[in-house]
Design a protein around this nucleic acid. Sequence first.
RNA 1: GGAGAGAUGCCUGAGUGGCCGAAAGGAACAGUUUGCUAAACUGUCGUACUGGCAACGGUACCGAGGGUUCGAAUCCCUCUCUCUCCGCCA
Length: 423
Amino acid sequence: MLQLPFIRDNKETVLAGLRKRHFPNADATVEQVLALDQQRRDTQRELDDILAQSNAKAGQIGALMKAGDKTAAEAAKVETASLKARSKDLADTLRQLEADQQSVLVTLPNIPHTSVPEGRSAEDNEVVLEHGEKPTLHAGAQPHWELIKKYDIIDFELGVKISGAGFPVYKGKGARIQRAMINFFLDEALKAGYIEVQPPIVVNEDSGFGTGQLPDKEGQMYYVTEDKLYLIPTAEVPITNIYRDVILPENQLPVKNVGYTPCFRREAGSWGAHVRGLNRLHQFDKVEIVRIEKPGNSYAALEEMSQHVQGLLQKLELPYRVLRLSGGDMGFTSALTYDMEVWSAAQQRWLEVSSVSNFETYQANRLRLRSKVEGKMQLLHTLNGSALALPRILASILENNQTSAGIRIPSVLVPYCGFDTIS
RNA sequence: GGAGAGAUGCCUGAGUGGCCGAAAGGAACAGUUUGCUAAACUGUCGUACUGGCAACGGUACCGAGGGUUCGAAUCCCUCUCUCUCCGCCA
């Protein structure tokens, strides 16, 4: 959520940012927020004034009672009645104005960083770099959904029986390579100084709001109505919410956490072409890195996280590219996002396997995550990135590393899974 | 799930209607003293909104939300959570 004083003082910056995102009705919305803010402040001022008068009267009455002057006290009580009625009205008005203001404020996305490319969609994303050689496959090479059947390592039909489409069952070497990747990713993060956490994988409404999934992405999460809990779409939600309502001592910064969790996404309305096999699932595994940084350091941290993710892809020997998302394609809460995509040789397309973002103070404002930096209380910056999401990595390994003899496991994973070939 | 107890500032903990934004101790921070460390002493030590160039003010907050009252941390109601005991259980 954008900070109100920031909108007040930087209206043009905010408007320019919203335009970059192609946010509809930017001008009207900002005007509305500012008008509500003015009303709110006027009301609060008036209310505070009335309350100050009431407090003074109450003090006087107390003094009179103590002095035993009942008559004067009773007379003073009568005078408080109108103040009381007025303050009640004003308090109601204030509450309403705050609620109205909040409801508009939550519809405003984050302001994009200056380096974010102009654009409406994924077409306009900037390719920052491409790394590695796209492999040439042997004749008869197959897409991963054929390979998993051929080697019997993932069973979609079985998942349908147990749960539904998009909930695959990993079997044998399929299950073992998943476990291997999780451990590999976690170990690499530990080496990079991240502290491992195991958060809950269902969260309450406050948590969903804190990181910005609610109210924006309500329909994308599975919801347990009986207990009012959401299945997490990413570990970002529970891990970042560890720091909700927290004032971190400056010497504890930066915070670097890593966690492995399953992730659940309803993906309502997004099924169609290009979603075969592992390309899009309702449940998948992901290792996530989360950082909390002082404002001045967050972009350096973002680059470091990008390098970390790229390091993983290099070690896995997968051709990849890095995109800087355009204003129109970026997530609601992000100020700058890099997407990492691996090459899927049989599908002949890039698959997103990581998204690394700096949210600046957008989440911190909702989370009330602050620190006293140089004596001044201020919102911190939150960042996170997938390091990495498993299914598409697996898809890419299967497709890129297939030979007529079987699938070669990247050497870095061999110690983790205990085999070097799927055949 | 049943019964009981409780929720106060970074922590412990006092506070049962006005003198309480809140005692006291601890921690932390700054300074004095000191060969270093420690100790001792002194000071600082909540957050949010809001007015003001500032100095300095106003308001709110003692789990959350309502209520009683001129006045609520303190009384009443509802909810949430925590702890103890019992039950169930990976």
